[in-house]
């Protein structure tokens, strides 16, 4: 079998499931053989998950985390996309602001936690602010590069058909840059999901991040810690998968490589 051979229907699911199953088995037997008292086995994690569901905390924690991400990411998109488009459209403005952005960009949102607490106190708003910061920069950067990568030929065609600068921005530059903007949004959503967990460990007392830290602090319930971690992973995957569906919309599909 070579890499060009099309995998059969069942193979697409069989091999990944086998790999996951082997990992679970490895985990299970490692716990047994090392006889650890601290780290939970897959079975106790499963029981922990069931316990969380029974106590109805899991759904409200998931809901809280998702709500914070939606707020922080949403605001970052609302502010970041227009700002990025402007910076890409006016290179002079970009030259002025770019150094500041480049200095702020590599600072982990975690480092902003003390600052966020000064600004907003302990609470939801601090967490949302941190998520906003984490997703803002990838969005701005993607928009700037998206706009500056628009081929000159498209702008010229826009001018040729008598469009005003605003119309060119709306009808040529934005749709031409949209695939790259979507990539930026997807990266930002991934970062937002990373940041929400960290923010919830410090700033608030609900959400999946809080569930992780609280399970450890109140009685060293590592089965619940790992259960919450698994939920974080699964939801992150689902968010990314959902966002990827946007890439198949016809008016942006040209910007992505798709196996046909």
């Amino acid at each position: 079998m070579n890499s060009l051979a099309k995998p059969r229907g069942w193979e697409k699911f069989f091999w990944p499931l086998l790999a996951a199953g082997l990992l679970l088995a490895l985990w299970h037997y490692s716990v047994l053989w090392t006889a650890t008292k601290v780290f939970p086995s897959p079975l106790s994690v499963e029981k922990g998950l069931a316990e969380l569901l029974r106590k109805h905390v899991l759904w409200s924690d998931i809901g809280d985390s998702l709500r914070r991400v939606a707020l922080g990411f949403g605001m970052a998109a609302i502010v970041g996309i227009p700002l990025g488009l402007m910076l890409g459209w006016y290179p002079a403005l970009n030259q002025v602001l770019n150094p500041v952005l480049q200095i702020l960009r590599p600072i982990s949102p975690i480092a902003w936690i003390p600052v966020a607490i000064i600004f907003f106190g302990i609470g939801d708003r601090a967490a949302v602010f941190l998520i906003f910061l984490g997703s803002f920069f990838p969005i701005v950067v993607a928009c700037v590069s998206g706009v500056s990568n628009v081929p000159a030929i498209f702008r010229r065609a826009g001018r040729n058909f008598g469009l005003s600068p605003t119309q060119i921005l709306a009808r040529v530059i934005f749709p031409a840059a949209l695939p790259q903007i979507l990539i930026g949004l997807r990266i930002a959503l991934g970062v937002a999901w990373l940041v929400v967990v960290a923010a919830e460990m410090i700033a608030v007392d609900s959400g999946l991040g809080y569930l992780v830290i609280d399970s450890r602090n109140s009685g060293k319930r590592y089965d619940l810690v790992v259960a919450a971690m698994l939920m974080i992973g699964l939801i992150g995957l689902a968010l990314d998968f959902g966002f990827r569906r946007l890439e198949t919309i016809r008016s942006v599909r040209w910007g992505f490589r798709h196996e046909s």
Binding site: I153, A157, G162, P175, L178, S251
Partner: peptide
């Protein structure tokens, strides 16, 4: 003076808008 829809330039390639 400047481009005008009364005279349209057709480019060698990639001139059509891929999002439309």
């Amino acid at each position: 003076h400047g481009p005008d829809p009364r005279r349209i330039l057709v480019f060698q390639e990639r001139g059509v808008f891929p999002w439309l």
